[in-house]
Amino acid sequence: MYAQMVDTGSPSSMDERETRFQQRIDDGIRVEPQDWMPERYRKTLIRQISQHAHSEIVGQLPEGNWITRAPSLKRKAILLAKVQDEAGHGLYLYSAAETLGITRDQMVDDLHTGRAKYSSIFNYPTLTWADVGAIGWLVDGAAIMNQIPLCRCSYGPYARAMIRVCKEEAFHMRQGYDLMLSLCKGTPAQKAMAQDALNRWWWPSLMMFGPPDGDSVHSAQSQAWKIKLFTNDELRQKMVDQTVPQAEYLGLTVPDADLKWNAERGHYDYGDIDWEEFYNVVKGNGPCNRERLEVRNKAWTDGEWFRDALVAHADKQAQRAIAQAA
């Protein structure tokens, strides 16, 4: 998902405080910043929330690529609003992570030096305008699937941030589907462009949910802590079931020869996912990993004079206020 394969640390036997903590979580009582929490819970959440925040920030880049080339003023305004939302989502999440005792500067530094991860999906390129539609429809669709349950997660600030994010993600998904719908109702070339985008984004979108449950070593602990509410495979199945009829309505073909409705299970069966590709992207060898980090670092360095100027101005005003008071 936006946070993939989050390490939960090595388990030790629970002491009394930890047992009481787990009991509170089992009872559905939210954990708030000042409450006592096990160190592993704190560290795991920092990893999960900051990875989620980084994904929102890096997620601006693939779509930002098309702002200057949007086909109409209306589409440009919509895309600008969406990309601005992603920045906002990153900020809500950074704030939530900071309540756990990590600084913003530390998180930004972790991202820029490559120590921190972000979702594998944002390391794929946006080659055509249809990719903007496919991202909204599929990537944001997958994100919503994961984030709606997180609105009920055990950590208060994270749950509250998720509520805000989910409200806005619904706009993202719909504008994406609306864009695909326009292309599919357009010329054969436009429809072909939409099909090509689906072909390229389908499998990476399913990979977003993370490795299959059998290989997902940290899931059980995260689920006990209620910072993960469904397993990777459960969410992936939900995504497939929801998306296939949407693709059919568009008149597009999902690029999976093994995809078929299984009446007995009441779900779609789908083909094998190329997990080697996923692990390769996570390791930093995806099509755009290096470019994404370079762009982030350049934006940060290029903005330094401006951040410094803001601080200088704030300092000057504060000095003046002191001088006047004296």
Partner: peptide, 11 residues
Amino acid sequence: VGSLHAPDATM
């Protein structure tokens, strides 16, 4: 509604 970082109150 939440929090944010800024160098001064105006920002």
